[in-house]
Design a protein around this nucleic acid. Sequence first.
DNA 1: TAGATTGTTAATCGATTAACAATC
DNA 2: TAGATTGTTAATCGATTAACAATC
Lengths: 218, 218
Amino acid sequence: MKSDKISEAVVRRLPVYLRYLQELYKREVTTVSSQELGLRLDLNPAQIRKDLAYFGDFGRKGIGYDVAYLIDKIRQILKLDQQINVALVGAGNLGHALSNYNRYVKDNMKIVAVFDSQPSKIGSNINTLTVQPMEELVKTVKDLNIRIGIITVPDSEAQRVADYLVEAGVEAILNFAPIIIKAPAHIRIHTADFTTDLLSLAYYLENEAGKEEEEDVK
Amino acid sequence: MKSDKISEAVVRRLPVYLRYLQELYKREVTTVSSQELGLRLDLNPAQIRKDLAYFGDFGRKGIGYDVAYLIDKIRQILKLDQQINVALVGAGNLGHALSNYNRYVKDNMKIVAVFDSQPSKIGSNINTLTVQPMEELVKTVKDLNIRIGIITVPDSEAQRVADYLVEAGVEAILNFAPIIIKAPAHIRIHTADFTTDLLSLAYYLENEAGKEEEEDVK
DNA sequence: TAGATTGTTAATCGATTAACAATC
DNA sequence: TAGATTGTTAATCGATTAACAATC
């Protein structure tokens, strides 16, 4: 077991492991090897073993990993052994889509409040939650011990919403607006920007037949 | 100018550059340095210069980059100088959210068809598009020259939908289902999995005060 | 000319992978 | 015991950053 600083790449693979382990658990598979995990998750088995070894000796030589035990351990590492309350800011289509994930997430992460600035949205219901006005954000975040904020507002509002969330004491932000948000260093920000994913896909398309690229001659 | 194989990391930064350049263009800024770009985008200026230099000598020493010219060049690199047709499979909330992005995307990437397997959804309208049954996917993709597919169906259907898309001749897939999809090597797949983003955020939260971690003694 | 900034090489840093002793 | 598989070290690979000559 080591205790270096864990790299972000490692941390981002943990939820991937967790998800597949949960699937195995449902299928009543009790043991799994790094080999099998790697095959299914398109990862190098050595990498998986190394990732897990950062946090402890979870496996058994000659046997593999106990599925239930490893699930427990990863949930502890990710701090998902306690309920983590989340605020969703922006009650548009994307906000709706995200709030639906509440039911799937058996992972103790729960959206407990939804905010929007549009008067037409305020007071309406999303699943079991009522959309609150932005003015209540700071108070509600404090009252409900909300620790993570999700931003699904238009780009132009994203930075302002981030500032509110920080003011309210949130520790981390998941930002869906395709802009770089600035916040104090102790706030963890992940940007979930699918326009980047989509546009970068285009690079890998075949060039259309018949289309000559004249300027590449040089 | 080089012509090595360009790494994925580089390609994924191109849309980020493009977006900010477009913002500068709208603000009628004509020239920008790697310094300024780096500051705004939280990237090392040397990295930005290097990224761009893979594709050509776009800047001018002592001056910087011409905004309009660089926008043009990046759009060419990303093949966004031609219209790229996209199919959306899954007309749920997430699908709705994505289809809205059509209007923002002045980038020639356009969702031109929407599919779903649920009878209740088929025939309904999303913006200007009518939801089609899955059975029409292969034919429509061919007829409309659709080159990219976006998957926003439940996990359990995602692999099957991917298979359809591949059969129909799509060249790339953006997958929102949190599973690893298998496809032939020539198909480019990007996974946009925000549950991973969200769960990994939890790792960076402070440990709750008063909570002793007994098992870390060892 | 002096100041600014690129394009590019070399140095550094970090992440992935291979290999294997330990051991179930 | 023989086979399997971990945990970990060493080797490799790749990406980022620093530095600077070229030049606008």
